[in-house]
Design a protein around this nucleic acid. Structure first.
Length: 682
DNA sequence: ATAGGGTTAG
């Protein structure tokens, strides 16, 4: 209710004012707050009608001031207020006089509310005229005499190209503009067109040459960078904009916040937040508030996001969606579901976006029942029509919950499918170990003429690996190479290596790793742990040395493989050396798995006292498994002394560890210490 | 032609 009856009509009213200049701010605000829904709506509709027929450059002002109702009221009521606001703090207003190419173009525009002022407005009261004259502003600067029709036509066409993302046509217009020598007048429209069509280099080039003085143009550039996953460039562009002396407004800030979330730069985001508060922009802009909330949510600061949701002056369903998506992104599906309930209690109806997020949340925590419930609701509201994203999210939810027949069923009933929908299904089959089903889907997808992408290949390689389908896997690898996909995609590269490893084709795996254009640890890990798993420990260590030689930094996974290999080969000293270097040289924090490896390593050679030294360094907490492993080793070697201490630690950490009691009793018994054994068993 | 540039999702 809140969103529909309050926020949006209010927004329409505001737009109406800035365009028509004909209603008073105070009047319209109080109207939108106090009137009923239908009245606000009809008011804004009326305003829109007025706006569309209103053409200030045809000197409509005189006609309007002659009218009786309701414009005559607002004309006298609103202007003085706006001028008062302008005189109070001119820095809150854009001064557009130097860019004025037409009398209809406003002389001043408020940075936050977008309200406009014309110096030569006939309704302007005399005290304002006096004040203007005192400030030597009694006449507007002469409009730039370039009211050239060519220019106008070009700008209009460029805008159309921008809207339809027609880069080809836009470039042709650019050529035409160059021929006529009108680039200077059209540069802003050109930059915006290139930016919107994704021709970022071209847009930036023109921006550099023409050093635009237009904040809208800069914002278009920033947005284009952010939308093309070049958030760093977006932020850099924002810096340049400020260095050029242009002030960002609410829209600019919203775009920049978007860029901050892409690069997870919460500090930058906080600074922007402070600036937004300083400029008082939050109050009347839901979108800006939502962008802010989304930034905190995407950067993982969910408590701040939650707090914002509570205190934002205006919020809508998008605010809730941003919060829910944040929880989902962080894997906190339960929290996401809780928000979903809460938003409905507060009277917001979920949208397709809400449902999409919630489905993902259900999939991530395996909440099949809730997911199914949401699915029926979506079907009931007929939201699956023309919404591939929502359909795919449903398939994905069922697949992630392991309900593959259900996933298949939904998939078949989708009104349309794309590569992502297919991927959801294929990934589901691959993850459940149903490799043949995955391959079957892959074939069907190609029959339907839909080309695979990196994600598809990655899933299919996974399926090939689990099936040991070397031929199919090799075929896919060659296709990937043909498409040059290994140049940029580490995940895919690792999938290729992993496929060869799982098929036991280690030579091919090694060859791929050696020839990869990207330096990354993951493909090497796949190879090393693969060798270690296969018992080919010497090969694992050989690869590790090669990798270090290539200057690639090992991570926690690498060392798990390496320590396992050392353990199997009985290389106690080398294992200890790697264990030390992982902390000291490579700054990798050992986890439980590494400690267990070390126990295993020393345990095999009977050096249980050394094993204990290693464990003692462990940070206290989750170390029960490690003490149990040590106790097991003690049983094997009949080491009563170390065993006793391992037993004490095990018991201390877990009061009822039956296995530990049994092991200890066994150790005593083996050492013929039957009295002690009996005591333990009691 | 007198605005233009913005938030949430597989």
């Amino acid at each position: 209710m809140h969103a529909v009856s309050d926020v949006y009509p209010c927004k329409s009213v505001r737009i109406g004012i800035s365009l028509s200049l004909s209603l008073s701010l105070s009047l319209s605000l109080s109207l939108s707050l106090s009137l009923s829904l239908s009245l606000s709506l009809s008011l804004s509709l009326w305003l829109m009608a007025t706006v569309s027929s209103y053409q200030p450059w045809k000197s409509e002002f005189s006609k309007m001031s002659d009218r009786k109702e309701p414009t005559s009221i607002s004309c006298t009521a609103s202007l003085p207020m706006l001028w008062k606001e302008y005189f109070r703090d001119p820095s809150q207003w854009w001064d557009n006089r130097s860019r004025k190419v037409h009398p209809g173009y406003p002389d001043f525009k408020h940075k936050g509310t977008k309200q406009c002022l014309w110096i030569d407005n006939p309704c302007t009261p005399s005290w304002v005229t006096a004040e203007l004259s005192r400030r030597s502003m009694e006449t507007p600067l002469p409009a730039r005499p370039v009211i050239c029709d060519d220019c106008t036509a070009f700008v209009v066409s460029l805008r159309a190209c921008a809207k339809s993302k027609d880069l080809r046509k836009g470039s042709l217009i650019h050529e035409e503009i160059l021929r006529k020598g009108l680039v200077d007048q059209c540069s802003d429209a050109l930059i915006t067109m290139y930016a919107k069509c994704g021709a970022l280099v071209k847009a930036q080039e023109l921006l550099d040459i023409h050093s635009s003085r237009n904040a809208y143009t800069w914002t278009a550039m920033i947005t284009a960078y952010a939308q093309h996953k070049q958030a760093r460039d977006a932020l850099r562009c924002f810096e340049h904009m400020q260095l050029a002396g242009l002030s960002p407004d609410a829209v600019t800030f919203a775009c920049v916040l978007n860029a901050c979330s892409s690069v997870q730069d919460i500090d930058k985001g906080r600074k922007i937040h402070a600036e937004i508060i300083r400029q008082g922009l939050i109050g009347d802009d839901v979108v800006l508030g939502n962008a802010l909330l989304d930034m905190y949510a995407k950067c993982g600061a969910l408590s701040t996001a939650q707090y914002l949701l509570q205190w934002l002056p205006s919020r809508d369903v998008v605010s809730w969606n941003a919060l829910i998506s944040g929880y989902t992104l962080l894997g906190q599906g339960e929290q996401a579901l809780r928000c979903f309930e809460q938003m409905q209690i507060e009277g917001f109806s979920p949208t397709s976006v809400t449902f999409t997020c919630i489905l993902e949340a259900c999939g991530s925590i395996g909440a099949l029942e809730k997911g199914e419930e949401v699915f029926y609701e979506i079907a009931k509201q007929e939201l699956f029509e023309n919404n591939i994203v929502l359909g795919t999210a449903t398939v994905d939810m069922f697949a992630k919950c392991g309900a593959l027949s259900k996933a298949q069923q939904v998939f078949q009933n989708l009104p349309s499918r794309d590569v992502v929908s297919w991927n959801a299904l294929i990934a589901g089959y691959a993850a459940q170990g149903q490799g043949n089903q995955a391959l079957e889907c892959f074939a069907k997808m190609q029959q339907e003429g839909i080309s695979a992408n990196e994600v598809t290949y990655s899933c299919i390689l996974d399926a090939c690996g689990s099936l040991g389908a070397l031929d199919k896997g090799t075929e896919v690898h060659h296709e990937i190479t043909r498409q040059n996909l290994l140049q940029t995609n580490i995940v895919l590269s690792t999938a290729v290596v992993d496929m060869y490893v799982k098929c036991g084709a280690f030579q091919s795996a090694e060859q791929v790793v050696e020839e990869l254009p990207l330096q990354a640890v993951a493909p090497w890990n796949s190879l090393i742990t693969g060798y270690a798993r296969q018992g080919q420990s010497d090969q694992a260590l050989k690869c590790f040395k090669l990798m270090i030689h290539r200057g690639i930094n090992p991570d926690a996974v690498t060392f798990t493989g390496v320590l396992n290999a050392c353990s199997h080969l009985g290389l106690t000293d080398e294992g200890l050396m790697h264990f030390m270097s992982m902390k000291k040289i490579y700054n990798v924090k050992p986890d439980i798995g590494h400690y267990t490896c070390m126990i295993d390593l020393f345990g095999r050679s009977g050096q249980l006292d050394k094993a204990m030294e290693v464990i003692k360094e462990m940070p206290p907490g989750e170390d029960l498994a490690v003490w149990s492993a040590l106790l097991g080793a003690c049983q094997k070697w009949g080491d009563v002394n170390v065993g006793k201490r391992a037993f004490e630690h095990s018991v201390e950490l877990s009061q009822n560890d039956a296995a530990a009691y049994a092991l200890m009793a066994n150790i005593y018994a083996t050492a013929s210490l039957y009295n002690d054994a009996e005591k333990v068993e009691v």
